[in-house]
Design a protein around this nucleic acid. Structure first.
Length: 153
DNA sequence: GCCAACGTTGGC
DNA sequence: GCCAACGTTGGC
């Protein structure tokens, strides 16, 4: 089983929005970065777990745990000219962008701020989130890194 | 295929 | 709101 981290802007779709969603599920649409897409399309399996992370907000933090419940399928928002993530170059017959479905496992008892995670940088070598200039919105998390971060809860 | 210009991300 | 870092675009 693999572990992941999913970033989202708090204002756009927060952990509470997921908690309020029907079935506490959502499709993770709008990823328009090839590296992130490849992780979703090629490596995510049903049952994998992911951190839900709030970015670009007052306290960037890991706030919850989610589970992959459907493996990659075409991101239909790329075909919708009215969608902010519309991409004219994604052909429905040969889709460029993919998404997965995730469901809430649980909200963390306490959010784990990026700042605290960075305090353990010496034990988080290779963790994309704390690398300089990192902009990946979907990234893998090593099991030992997953464990360490959860131990901070 | 290079690379400057541009738009976006995201921490601070 | 600033700005460094990055990915993408497009002219050549």
């Amino acid at each position: 089983m693999n572990y992941w981290l999913f970033k989202n802007e708090h204002e756009d779709f927060s952990i509470d929005d997921l908690a309020a969603a029907r079935g506490k599920k959502t499709h993770w649409d709008g990823v328009r970065n090839y590296q992130a897409r490849n992780f979703m399309r090629d490596d995510m399996r049903v049952g994998d777990l992911g951190f839900f992370y709030h970015s670009n907000c007052e306290v960037p933090a890991v706030v919850g745990i989610i589970e992959i419940v459907r493996e990659a399928y075409p991101d239909h928002t790329a075909f919708d000219a009215n969608d902010p993530h519309f991409d004219a170059k994604s052909d429905p017959d040969d889709p460029r962008w993919f998404m997965v479905d995730v469901k809430m496992v649980r909200k963390l008892d306490r959010q784990i701020p990026l700042k605290e995670i960075k305090d353990h940088a010496d034990k988080l070598e290779g963790f994309h989130l704390i690398q300089r200039g990192n902009r990946l919105s979907v990234m893998p998390v090593k099991p030992k890194h997953w464990k360490l971060i959860l131990s901070l809860e």
